[in-house]
């Protein structure tokens, strides 16, 4: 079963559906290293931004989740502001092998839409939301979106 992760990744590549909000691309030299770009969801302070993620798939994938971090700086209670580390249950204990890389990206889009202020890796963001100051949180998040994430989704080669 040691090759299982490669087999699974090849199957995922074949079955990836077109999603205008997610661009996933594996490294040319290593199928276990991936880059994703996800589009900030409309109606959130991340709207208009495109966020880059780094995904690394371990040999025991899909029994264990991929390691995912934000490369693009983002102001969000569950994302560490400088390291990009993400606190999300489905990337740790709640992971299930039924998920794939695309589903993982969808979970991160959901996280951008629905921050959980009670398990913050970014305390400032968490505190603003917990204090009920949505306005402050949103303006900070929007500012960083404009500053770091204002770009277009990458285009797939040949399309």
């Amino acid at each position: 079963m040691s090759m299982a992760c490669f087999k699974r990744l090849r199957m995922e590549i074949k079955s990836m559906s077109d999603d205008p909000d997610i661009f996933l691309e594996s490294s040319e030299s290593d199928i276990r290293r991936w880059k994703a770009h996800i589009r900030g969801p409309p109606g959130t302070p991340y709207e208009g931004g495109v966020f880059e993620l780094d995904l690394t798939v371990g040999m025991q994938y899909p029994l264990v989740p991929p390691a995912v971090t934000f490369v693009t700086r983002v102001f969000h209670p569950n994302v560490h502001f400088t390291t990009g580390a993400i606190c999300l249950d489905v990337l740790s204990r709640a992971w299930t092998p039924a998920w794939g890389l695309q589903a993982t990206c969808r979970a991160l889009l959901a996280l951008l839409s629905d921050p959980a202020a009670d398990s913050p890796l970014n305390c400032d963001a968490g505190n603003m939301i917990r204090a009920g100051d949505a306005c402050a949180f949103e303006s900070m998040a929007r500012m960083y979106t404009l500053e770091h994430a204002a770009r277009d989704m990458p285009r797939r080669a040949g399309s």
């Binding site: 560490h80 502001f81 390291t83 580390a85 890796l121 305390c123 400032d124």
Partner: peptide, 24 residues
């Protein structure tokens, strides 16, 4: 922009602690 970023970096020392706790 740079100064606001520095403020943010300082303000995130609490976050650094949270990250350490989380990683621990």
């Amino acid at each position: 922009m740079e100064s606001s970023e520095r403020d943010q970096e300082e303000a995130t020392s609490e976050s650094a602690k949270k990250l350490q706790e989380y990683e621990a």
